[in-house]
Simulated assay, not measured.
Amino acid sequence: MLDLINSLLFDYTVRTVAMGAAVLGIVAGALGTFALLRRQSLLGDAMSHAALPGVLLAFMLTGSKAPVVLVLGAAVAGVLGTFLLLSITRFSRVKEDAALGIILSVFFGFGLVLLTYLQRNPTAAQAGLNSYLFGQAATLLTRDVVTMAAFGGGALLLLALFWKEFKLLSFDRDFGSSLGYPMTVLDMLLTTLLVIGIVIGLQAVGVVLMSALVVAPAAAARQWTDRLGVMMIVASAFGALAGVAGAFISSLGAGLSTGPVVVLVVSVIVLLSLLFGASRGLVWSWLQQQRHRRTLRTQSVLADLYGLTTAQHPDPRHPHNFELLRAMNRYQGGVRHSLRALESAGLVRETTPGEWALTDAGVARAREEQISKEGVK
Rank of each mutant, 00 (worst) to 15 (best):
I26E: 03
L36I: 04
H337M: 12
R222Q: 04
H320S: 11
N121C: 04
S372V: 06
G307D: 09
K373V: 13
A98V: 09
A341M: 13
S64P: 06
H337P: 09
V262Q: 14
E343F: 00
S92V: 08
L296E: 11
L159S: 01
L308I: 00
D226V: 08
Y331N: 09
G153I: 07
D187Y: 10
T142Q: 13
S92D: 06
H337I: 06
A98T: 14
L112V: 14
L37G: 07
A212I: 04
P53W: 00
A50S: 10
R93E: 14
A366L: 13
V76E: 07
E369S: 10
K377T: 09
I200D: 11
D315R: 12
T139V: 14
L287Q: 09
G176D: 06
A245D: 03
K167C: 15
A28S: 10
G354F: 03
V79L: 15
L324S: 02
L209K: 03
V55R: 08
V301G: 14
A127K: 12
E369Q: 12
W284G: 04
L9V: 06
S211I: 09
T142R: 09
V266Q: 03
G20F: 05
V55A: 08
V301P: 11
G206E: 04
Q126M: 11
R349K: 14
W224S: 01
A366R: 00
E96D: 10
